[in-house]
């Protein structure tokens, strides 16, 4: 059995996740602070690939990075390689479809972040960079991890746009998703089952780890309100103006 599709799928999904991790967090952080109209527009643009059919995403990608597209032709001219029909072409497709998930979950995490922590840090003289890496990110950890896992799962499961920009070339651009389709077309059910099983196992593992994160995330956090061991003896006096 040729293990290339597994290796290629993991490689493409891994790199796509890596890129969407940084782009997604940066976009989420920047957009959370943006004025309302800018926020609305950018939010739509970044979320669009989530709701578009993958073939539409693939179509757009081909028009942009294809050998005749504005980016694709420039790259071919300058460095002499094609951006489509290579193993790394799938990374473009994977990143575009995974980014919305990373961006959305990260933004949700930033929005629930208690901004007084940031203010407190600033008045204490801590730099904004320090506060981003040591206070904001750690306190949004659950959301960001969840986004990363989801992005990876989505990039791994991508088929439509991938097959359009990377095609199916055994040993060069084949991924699990495209391999299963090809095997089914050839009537090679036995091998198709094997790949289906492998894909199920990976997806299952990803979702289980995701659930473990979710559990931790949804469990009531220890409240920051005062915890008193002794019972209240006096009722609060009614506040007077």
């Amino acid at each position: 059995m040729d293990w290339f599709p597994l290796y290629n799928s993991l490689r493409v999904a891994g790199i796509s996740t890596f890129i969407s991790f940084f782009v997604g967090i940066f976009a989420a952080h920047a957009i959370a602070k943006a004025p309302r109209i800018v926020k609305g527009v950018l939010d739509c643009v970044l979320t669009l690939p989530l709701v578009l059919p993958p073939t539409v995403v693939g179509f757009f990608l081909l028009k942009v990075i294809g050998p005749l597209g504005p980016v694709g032709s420039r790259v071919l001219e300058l460095w002499g390689f094609r951006m489509t029909m290579a193993w790394y072409s799938a990374i473009f497709a994977g990143t575009v479809v995974a980014l919305p998930l990373m961006y959305r979950t990260a933004r949700g995490a930033f929005e629930t972040f208690d901004v007084t922590l940031l203010y407190a840090g600033q008045t204490l003289g801590l730099s904004d960079t320090f506060l981003f890496w040591r206070v904001i990110l750690p306190n949004c950890r659950q959301g960001i991890l969840a986004g990363t896992v989801l992005s990876f799962a989505r990039a791994l499961g991508e088929y439509g746009a991938t097959t359009m920009v990377a095609g199916y070339i055994p040993g060069r651009t084949a991924m699990i998703s495209t391999t299963v389709y090809q095997l089914w077309r050839e009537g090679n059910d036995a091998l198709a089952y094997k790949w289906v099983g492998i894909n199920l196992a990976i997806s299952f593992g990803v979702l289980v780890s995701m659930n473990m994160l979710e559990n931790r995330y949804t469990r009531p956090r220890k409240s920051s309100a005062p915890i008193f061991s002794e019972p209240k003896r006096f009722s609060e006096p009614k506040r007077e103006l």
Partner: peptide, 11 residues
């Protein structure tokens, strides 16, 4: 500035 909720870094 002492905030109402104290704003200690939870992590």
């Amino acid at each position: 500035l002492l905030f109402q909720n104290y704003a200690l870094f939870p992590n």
